[in-house]
């Protein structure tokens, strides 16, 4: 009986002594952490996507508390109300721009831009871009190996097997910008979401002269400049044989879409044209009021 008692006593005492040591050490070497960091961290998505430019959500939370203002701090995944909450915890005020979404600016599907060659190297757009111009005649368009799909942490971008082009799921996309960085051809751009997710954009990045671009792809921008003239808001610029629509100036009037002889300007999420004829006018007004 006594040996059980000895064992209990010895172990109990050892435990007690070690516990005291641990307590003393933890008091002595205590790391002061701002409780706000923890609170902010709970609000963050914990995806560690890096879209904010910090190594992870914890680093972002710490930066929110440490920095004087919220300038340059934006979690692309969080909705605006969450960002306001975070700012409130950190004791700053925050002004948020328009919400954004990733847009693939290439419409060179298999039908519009047929394959002329076979690329059978490493299945990576970056490797294909290093090798040569890719399998089609266009030296600017999508290579179709899916580097953007691989880097998306939110499962928001997928390859369409029919067109061979990536498709962004606008509900899942958080505009973290990972795909923008991954694309070696700089095709993907973050554009403002607008009301009802409506967007008008030039779905081409081909900087070649008109005839060369046209030969490579049926829907390539040929830099004719018709859209520039048609735009009543001076939102379209033409540089290096390529039109670009500034989404901050664009009022979604869609005049350029009808003008484009190459059909390279796309308008998405608009209701069908015939029904919507009067609607765009209202749309413009609403946008202006905002």
């Amino acid at each position: 009986m006594s040996f059980i008692l000895t064992a209990v006593l010895v172990l109990g005492l050892t435990g007690l002594v070690l516990g005291l040591v641990l307590y003393a050490v933890s008091r002595r070497f205590k790391v002061e952490e701002d409780p706000r960091v923890g609170q902010i961290l709970e609000l963050l998505p914990a995806a560690n996507c890096g879209g904010c430019g910090f190594p992870g959500c914890a680093a972002f939370a710490e930066a929110c508390v440490k920095q004087e203002s919220m300038d340059g701090l934006k979690c692309s995944v969080c909705k605006s109300e969450v960002m306001h909450q975070i700012a409130a915890i950190a004791g700053h005020s925050v002004e948020l721009g328009a919400e954004k979404v990733a847009v693939v600016r290439c419409n060179g599907s298999c039908a519009n831009r047929p394959n002329l060659r076979v690329y059978d190297g490493a299945p990576s757009c970056a490797a294909a871009a290093l090798m040569n111009g890719g399998a089609t005649g266009c030296f600017y368009g999508c290579l179709g190996c899916g580097d953007c799909v691989k880097v998306c942490k939110f499962d928001a971008i997928k390859m369409d097997p029919e067109t061979g082009l990536p498709v962004v799921d606008q509900d899942k996309c958080t505009a973290c910008g990972a795909c923008v960085k991954a694309c070696p051809r700089m095709i993907i751009e973050l554009r403002s979401k607008n009301k009802l997710d409506r967007r008008v954009y030039v779905s081409c990045v081909n900087k070649d002269k008109g005839p060369v671009a046209k030969k490579a792809c049926d829907v390539a921008c040929i830099g004719c400049g018709k859209c520039v003239k048609a735009c009543p808001f001076e939102a379209i610029t033409l540089e290096n044989n390529l039109a670009y629509i500034d989404f901050e100036k664009c009022r979604l009037c869609r005049k350029c879409v009808d003008e484009c002889p190459q059909h390279s300007i796309l308008a998405v999420n608009f209701p069908p044209k015939r029904v919507a004829e009067p609607a765009p006018e209202n749309q413009v007004e609403q946008q202006t009021e905002q």
């Binding site: 190297g121 490493a122 990576s124 970056a126 490797a127 290093l130 090798m131």
Partner: peptide, 9 residues
């Protein structure tokens, strides 16, 4: 395996 392609990249 396309080793050289990856290494070049």
């Amino acid at each position: 395996r396309p080793l050289l392609d990856w290494v070049r990249l």
